[in-house]
């Protein structure tokens, strides 16, 4: 079961957790991650964060990321929600939740989906602070986080 949501509206963690659990007796592990807007980024006080995406490609890219995760771990239910539009500090941005029979697959699967989402899904953040507006640059650390899964798979194969 897979749910992908790209939306301006907020999400409720309890509802997402329930959707991972309801009538699900095979999975002993649920792992979820919530990403939120920070009020301080690279030393600047953030007033607003605007998220742009590529309608049509975004959903496809997220689905492909989840499919790649499922090739590696038994993830039965997966829910990915990413908000777009204008957000404020402390707002929720992203939810990734997975269910699996065992915890290590759930931890790794959720982390993999988050790491790949950050480098593969077409979202862009623009930040507004007292210094004005600026598009955020991609971070090398995000690229490194994704690549660690590639070296993992090589060392295990």
């Amino acid at each position: 079961m897979l749910h992908i949501g790209v939306q301006t509206s907020d999400f409720t963690v309890q509802q997402e957790y329930d959707a991972l659990c309801d009538a699900n007796t095979e999975d002993g592990a649920i792992v979820f991650f919530v990403g939120r807007v920070r009020d301080l980024n690279e030393g600047e006080a953030v007033k607003q964060l605007s998220l742009e995406h590529y309608p049509g490609m975004t959903e496809k890219a997220l689905t492909q990321v989840v499919e790649q995760a499922r090739e590696r771990w038994p993830l039965h239910r997966v829910r990915v929600i990413h908000r777009v539009g204008d957000l404020l500090p402390a707002d929720q941005i992203v939810f990734v939740g997975v269910s699996s029979p065992h915890r290590q697959a759930a931890f790794d699967g959720a982390a993999f989906i988050m790491d790949y989402l950050k480098t593969q899904a077409p979202f862009w953040k623009k930040e507004r602070s007292d210094q004005g507006e600026r598009w955020l640059d991609a971070r090398d650390s995000d690229r490194a986080s994704q690549e660690r899964w590639q070296s993992d798979s090589e060392s295990h194969s």
Binding site: Y54, A61, H82, K118, D137
Partner: peptide, 26 residues
């Protein structure tokens, strides 16, 4: 056509091509 490509890729009539900076979601 909604898939990222690397290297030289042929383009044909009716394709949807997009150019954008490295992504920064999550």
């Amino acid at each position: 056509n909604h898939d990222m490509v690397n290297g030289t890729t042929r383009l044909k009539a009716g394709d949807e091509v997009a150019l954008f900076p490295p992504v920064t979601g999550g």
